[in-house]
């Protein structure tokens, strides 16, 4: 049977992120933590493969212990096993260290045929962990997959979005794909699923999956460092125009364009 790994991340529910007008900071209080929206498409695609041709699905996530309920939610949807990589030693990981840690976790889970990730997480927006994980696992990858056209025990055929349109590609298994929202519409859990998940115990792996004093995890395994964060300020004052003035403005702006080239 095909073995699928789905990578998930817990992120703040960004549509509830509001700016405090006084302090100009992001209000985080009461912001719900959710499964990264793109990862819900990854989970759904794994479930569809399972329904169509049979598969064993393991969801994996790296995060703080409170991420476990999110993993139970994906178990409620039909995922077979869930693994949480959680240890203070993993904290502060950039995309390279995250990919390394996920690869270690996947190594502990065992053999797999296909890894499915969301295109990117909505908090960091890097879209780097998928390809980086593929490299760390020494398997090929495709990003921005909007459709799986064929999948057998040896190869997968995918359609991916490019800057100029779409490509259809064939890839050898085992491999990794990152998926966009185009691929499916995620389901809601069933009552039965929720009941099953309530009893389910999420597997927790700590830093013992790595070697002792492994320098490739957490902050020490992260080549990049955030040195400053700031709230972007928009100093723009909207100038309201009449339609004629707007037409002139558009003509002027698009003409400058043509001369510039």
């Amino acid at each position: 049977m095909m073995k699928i790994i789905v990578c998930t991340k817990q992120v703040p529910a960004t549509n509830e992120v509001k700016m405090d007008p006084v302090t100009n900071t992001i209000i985080r209080e009461g912001v719900e933590a959710i499964c990264n929206p793109f990862d819900t498409y990854a989970v759904e695609e794994a479930l569809r493969i399972k329904e169509k041709q049979g598969a064993h699905i393991t969801a994996i996530s790296m995060g703080i212990p409170t991420v476990a309920p999110m993993l139970k939610e994906v178990v409620a949807l039909g995922v077979d096993e869930a693994v949480l990589l959680t240890d203070r030693k993993f904290a502060g990981a950039d995309t390279l260290a995250t990919a390394y840690t996920l690869a270690k976790g996947i190594g502990k889970i065992g053999d797999f045929d296909l890894v499915i990730c969301g295109k990117q997480a909505t908090d960091g927006d890097t879209a780097q962990v998928g390809p980086s994980l593929a490299e760390t696992l020494s398997i090929p990858h495709l990003t921005d997959v909007g459709e799986i056209k064929e999948l057998n025990s040896k190869t997968i055929v995918c359609r991916r979005m490019t800057d100029d349109g779409y490509d259809e590609l064939e890839m050898d298994l085992p491999c990794l794909i990152t998926v966009t929202k185009e691929i499916n519409t995620p389901r809601l859990p069933s009552i039965l699923g929720i009941k099953k998940a309530q009893k389910y115990k999420v597997h927790k792996f700590n830093a013992n999956i790595c070697e002792e004093n492994d320098i490739h995890i957490g902050l020490s395994g992260s080549p990049t460092q955030v040195v400053k964060t700031f709230i972007p300020t928009s100093a723009v004052e909207c100038q309201f125009l009449k339609i004629k003035a707007l037409a002139d403005k558009l003509r002027e702006l698009s003409n400058i364009e043509e001369e510039g080239n």
């Binding site: 703040p12 960004t14 992120v17 700016m19 992001i26 909505t122 908090d123 960091g124 927006d125 080549p223 990049t224 460092q225 955030v226 040195v227 400053k228 964060t229 700031f230 709230i231 972007p232």
Partner: peptide, 13 residues
Amino acid sequence: PAFGGNLMATIIC
């Protein structure tokens, strides 16, 4: 930009 453009981060290597 991160957090959907709500936050800017300066990063070094």
